[in-house]
Simulated assay, not measured.
Amino acid sequence: MSNQSSFKSGFVAIIGRPNVGKSTLLNRFVGQKVAIMSDKAQTTRNRIQGVYTDKDAQLVFIDTPGIHKPKHALGDFMLKTAYSAISGVDVVLFVVNASEKIGPGDRLIIERLKHVEVPVILLINKVDLVHADDLLPIIDSYKNELDFNAIFPISATQGDNVAELVEHIKTLVPEGPQYYPANQVTDHPEYFVVAEFIREQILHLTREEIPHSVAVQVQSMQRNEDDKVEIQATIIVERKSQKGIIIGAQGSMIKKIGQGARREIEKLLDDKVYLDLWVKVQKDWRDHQTQLNDYGYKSNDY
C-alpha cells in the first residue's frame, strides 16, 4: 500500500432508472458477482454495497433500487432507499441507457440531483449498442439538464472506459482510511447475497409467471458432517398458485432453481454447498410492514 496519508477512500452511489445496467456496473467495478443481474426491472432491493480496493484507494459502491413510481409498501420503501443512498456519499454516478432518449424517469432523477452537493458523474451505459454518431446528441441532451462533473460513455458488460472512470472517481474522493479488508467485496453478510442468488434463479427460470412478489429468507448456513456448507432457505410467495409454479411438476422447477443458485453460491463461497429450499405462502406480504421487516427490508437500516 502507498503511504497511508495519501490513501483515499470514499462512498459512491450508483443511481438510475430500472434496467439501465447499475448492477452489471457494480459487478464490473468489484470484479466479481455481488449484485444480481436480471433483465426484469426491480431486482435490486437493498443497497448492495460493492467494495473496490487497490493500492491507493478504496471505493465503496452503493447500488440503489431503480427509481420508479411506487405501487405498494415495498415499492415505497425501495424508492426511499434509492434517495437516501444519495445522502452521505462522496460521488454520485447517474447511469442512463445510450439506446433510449432522455425520458420523464431520467428527469425525475435529475430534479433530485440538482440538490446534491457532491460531484455527479453521468454514465451513458450500453454504448456498445449504439453507433458513435448517435452518442453526441445524447450527451448534449443531458448536458442541457445538469452541470455534470464529468460524462463517461461506458459499457458495463464489455468494460469499455470503466478503468478510466475509476481513476476519475479516485480524484474526487477524500483521503481516508481503508474501511474494509482488501479482499472483501461486499458489506452484506453472506446470508443476504445467498438469498439474492436464489431469487435471481427464480426470476430467471419462472420468467413472467412469478412477479416480484417473492422473497427469500435464509434460515441457516452451517458446515455439515460432509464438510459442505449447508444452507436452509425459504422462498416466500403471495399465492398458492405461485407455490405450485415454483415447485413445478414432480418438483422439477425447485430442483432447477436449487441447482442454478447452488452453482453461484459455490463460486461466491469458494466451497461445496448443500442447498435445502422450502416454499411458503404468505398472503400480501409486500403490504405488511412487519413482514417486510422479517424479510430483511427494515426501514431503520437506511
Rank of each mutant, 00 (worst) to 15 (best):
K272N: 09
V214W: 01
D270T: 11
I86H: 00
E238Y: 10
L108P: 00
I235T: 01
D147G: 15
I202V: 15
T43G: 04
V30D: 02
I257Q: 05
Y295S: 05
I121V: 15
Q219L: 12
P181E: 07
V96W: 01
L26H: 01
T81N: 12
E225W: 10
S23Y: 00
N161R: 09
Y179S: 02
V273F: 02
S252Q: 13
R28Y: 01
D63S: 07
K80E: 14
L129Y: 06
T234V: 14
F197G: 04
L79N: 08
I36V: 12
K255C: 07
Q217S: 09
V237Q: 04
K228T: 09
V173S: 06
R263H: 11
D128C: 11
K8Y: 02
I67D: 12
P211R: 03
I14Q: 00
K71P: 13
K228F: 10
L172C: 10
F192Q: 06
N27P: 12
Y52V: 05
V120G: 01
K71R: 14
W278H: 14
D76E: 14
I154N: 05
D187V: 07
L108S: 09
R286V: 08
I235D: 00
H204M: 06
I247M: 14
F11D: 01
A13H: 03
K170T: 11
E190F: 04
I109S: 05
L135R: 06
V116P: 06
I36H: 04
V273E: 03
F152W: 06
A233N: 09
T206G: 05
M1A: 13
G88P: 04
R17C: 13
D270N: 15
T290F: 09
A195S: 15
V273G: 07
V229I: 14
F197K: 11
E225N: 10
R239W: 05
V229E: 03
V216N: 01
R262P: 13
Q242W: 00
V30H: 01
K101T: 14
G258M: 10
P104H: 13
T44M: 14
I198Y: 03
D133Y: 10
K255T: 12
R17M: 05
R263Q: 09
A73V: 13
A195P: 01
Y274P: 12
V91A: 01
D287T: 13
T290P: 04
G159D: 07
I246H: 03
L129D: 08
S252V: 07
D301I: 08
I257K: 01
M1D: 08
Y297E: 09
I235E: 00
H68F: 15
F11L: 15
E111D: 08
A132F: 08
L268K: 05
S84N: 10
Q217M: 08
V216G: 02
I48W: 00
Q184S: 12
S99R: 15
K71M: 09
K40A: 10
V95G: 03
I102E: 04
Y180M: 11
E145A: 11
N144R: 15
T64M: 06
P189K: 14
F7P: 11
Q291S: 14
G159P: 02
